[in-house]
Design a binder for these strands. Structure first.
Length: 668
DNA sequence: ACTTAGACTTGGAAAAATATTC
DNA sequence: GAATATTTTTCCAAGTCTAAGT
């Protein structure tokens, strides 16, 4: 049933290569033959000066727009090639101020909802160009060997074979689940009665080699050739990069439709190796302002799955993942957008609010540790874990997902009571990253956990795979938290914990050295900052795999350090002899200054090496991006005259623009 | 009550871009 | 200036959490 819905992708094969992306001049042509191409003035969200004014603001096209609202089925049937249109005239920043009424009420056909803000409108006008499709598959003709003999494959089969071939050197190749899932998918693509009957007898090496050669070829292009390609790519992408939200130009995040591939789940994911099908316009739902032109796409026979005008949500498009049909893939605005900035601020303000409640919350859960109500007692311990360890909530997971846990899904086997009062945690968390931590806990907690490990609320004995907390799940816990503070949920503890820790560590360092602190070198201060950042990352268990080159590059560094030490020793001796020579030889002072310079350099290099070793498994980025209130960092920079650029790179600077004018006295 | 849909944040790895070294 | 090391960006998977549906 694979190809099932066929029919409208029949022409697929032919249209292959051509249209779609890259193609400088032809680009326009390809775009021209599309279907839904509506009217002339499809506002291309060019980076127009935007400065306003723009005398040319002609807009006028409001004539027959009405059709946008038609659900889709009864849209102008098959636009067919005839609908030729010239370039979509330069951007026409439509503003249409007074229209909001209509647009707002518009989305009524839809579930209304809209997550967070409830049904609150998030925008009034929304203009964008939709999504950019990956280019069609171009067959290379290289054959798979089956029992040593080359096998002819159709382009469709070859495409799938190539997805597999490219993964030759990954360790997915040694995972039975991956191989099994891939083979099931591949078998289906091959069709019944195909010569290939056993994956183990296939040799994809020729394809792998070919793909590698292609990659090398690309890498070997001259600077000019590469630049030319980039120009083309940029041109193809340009119109997708921005959207117009209530007249403001905003960056779009992921406007590219994900290309077909093999699903690479993390950890022991039951679905790894399944084929992620190609996504077409007919799979994609577009969300756009009622008065905005419907985005075009390069598939003449197709139309979007649906076009909505739902202003209670912030996504521009979505499609259902083919591997996991319960999952949606959304296209959103970028991190710099006002949607994101606003919710970022909200997130941190909520976490700050927890400060005012945390004392009571702690008092509460301590009392609950003693409760005779098992559920109360378990919740008390769970909240304590959130507070102390910043664990994730841990929602229930299906059997077709990797088996990972969080606070509420901890199993008996994940915790161990180590006398007199330590609890050892060992489990796979998000992304199957291992969490291993032994913590000191209050005796009451220790005792409580000992009990939870043994029996459930009804007194039944537990086994290793049973839930540690058997009286509630993450949803229940969140409901409970709502009673403690408006808007409180499990993840708020993580944000709170991370931010308050950074704030505390930074000010402790400042206070330790008082006025002298400002006088420290910027490098030294930055090192302090990184140390604090590291603490937060460890708290949140943000890990990374050791870089493949770590070992060798570390050896190199050590070697260099030794060389420096030798040099210093030599200089010291030289200095000694110069002193003895009393002016008849070299100038001892010159040597001394050279020496101290070398020693400073050595010190710096040693520090660098230590940090490198120290951070080989710690990822600082995640907490910086998602957990530490940027205002803490910015205020710290201001107080200590550290340029913000030392702490935030270009994208972080723009992501956190909303926080830039915080006062230097800001405390989380 | 419970299950699922839906929407949004968070996460590590890989790829690409830059900086540094030889 | 090519080779390497480091940083940034991209990719897309995997969480959280609320609301809707039954």
């Amino acid at each position: 049933m694979s190809s099932s819905d066929s029919d409208d992708d029949m022409p697929l094969a032919q249209r292959a290569a051509q249209n779609v992306d890259v193609k400088p001049a032809s680009n326009g042509a390809a775009a021209a033959k599309r279907p839904a191409a509506r009217k002339p003035s499809s506002a291309a969200a060019r980076s127009s000066p935007s400065s306003g004014s723009s005398g040319s603001d002609s807009d006028s096209d409001s004539d027959s727009d009405s059709e946008d609202d038609v659900p889709l089925s009864q849209r102008t049937p098959q636009p067919k090639a005839g609908a030729k249109r010239k370039k979509p005239a330069a951007a026409a920043v439509k503003k249409q101020p007074a229209k909001k009424q209509k647009t707002n009420s518009g989305s009524s056909t839809r579930p209304k909802s809209g997550g967070k803000g409830g049904g609150e409108p998030k925008w009034t006008t929304l203009v964008h160009s939709g999504v950019l499709f990956p280019s069609e598959y171009e067959p290379h003709g290289v054959k798979v060997l089956y029992e040593g003999k080359p096998v002819e494959l159709t382009p469709e089969q070859e495409e799938v074979a190539s997805m597999f071939a490219i993964m030759k050197e990954t360790d997915y190749m040694s995972k039975p689940t991956f191989l099994k899932n891939f083979w099931e998918g591949f078998k289906e693509v091959l069709g019944r009665g195909h010569v290939i009957k056993d994956l183990a007898k296939c040799d994809f090496t020729p394809i792998y080699d070919h793909l590698m050669a292609e990659r090398d070829k690309k890498k070997a292009l001259t600077k000019e050739e590469k630049a030319a390609i980039k120009v083309q790519k940029d041109a193809a992408e340009a119109k997708y990069k921005h959207a117009l939200v209530d007249g403001r130009q905003e960056q779009v995040g992921n406007f590219r439709v994900e290309p077909p591939s093999l699903f690479r789940g993390r950890g022991e994911h039951p679905k790894m190796g399944k084929i992620k099908q190609r996504v077409y316009p007919r799979d994609i739902t577009i969300n756009i302002g009622r008065d905005a032109p419907i985005p075009e796409h390069p598939y003449p026979g197709q139309r979007w799955k649906e076009v909505r005008h739902d202003n209670t949500v912030t996504w521009l498009a979505f499609w259902k993942d083919t591997v996991n049909p319960k999952e949606y893939k959304y296209v959103w605005l970028g991190a710099t957008s006002s949607f994101k900035a606003e919710s970022d601020l909200l997130k941190y303000e909520k976490a700050r609010k927890l400060k005012d409640y945390i004392t009571d919350i702690r008092k509460n859960y301590k009392r609950d540790w003693e409760s005779s109500d098992v559920r109360k007692k378990q919740m008390g311990v769970a909240v304590y874990f959130l507070d102390k360890l910043a664990l994730r909530a841990g929602h229930e997971k299906d059997d077709d997902e990797a088996d990972t846990v969080g606070c509420c899904t901890l199993k008996v086997e994940n915790v161990e009571c180590v006398p007199p009062n330590h609890i050892k945690f060992d489990f796979l968390g998000k992304d199957s990253i291992r969490y291993e931590n032994t913590v000191d806990v209050e005796l009451a907690v220790y005792k409580a956990v000992q009990a939870f490990i043994k029996v459930d609320a009804k007194g039944k004995r537990k086994g290793p795979r049973d839930m540690l907390f058997d009286t509630f799940d993450a949803t229940d816990l969140n409901k409970e938290l709502k009673g403690l503070m408006d808007g409180l949920s499990v993840k708020v503890f993580r944000t709170y914990n991370a931010s308050i820790t950074l704030d505390r560590l930074l000010s402790e360092m400042e206070e330790a050295e008082e006025d002298a602190y400002a006088a420290k070198s910027v490098d030294a201060k930055k090192a302090d900052y990184d140390r604090a950042n590291k603490e937060v990352a460890i708290l949140c268990n943000h890990q990374r795999s050791v870089p493949k080159t770590h070992e060798t590059s570390m050896a190199k560094v050590t070697e260099k350090l030794n060389a420096m030490r030798e040099e210093i020793k030599a200089l010291e001796e030289e200095h000694e002899t110069a002193l003895k020579a009393k002016g008849r030889g070299k100038n001892p002072d010159a040597i001394a200054s050279k020496l101290s310079k070398k020693m400073a350099a050595l010190e710096k290099a040693e520090l660098q090496a230590a940090v490198k070793e120290d951070l080989k498994t710690v990822a600082l980025g995640t907490s910086k991006i998602n957990y530490m209130d940027p205002r803490i960092s910015i205020a710290w920079c201001k107080r200590n005259e550290v340029p913000i650029e030392k702490v935030f790179n270009k994208s972080l600077l723009s992501k956190f623009h909303w926080a830039m004018d915080v006062e230097s006295s800001f405390r989380f």
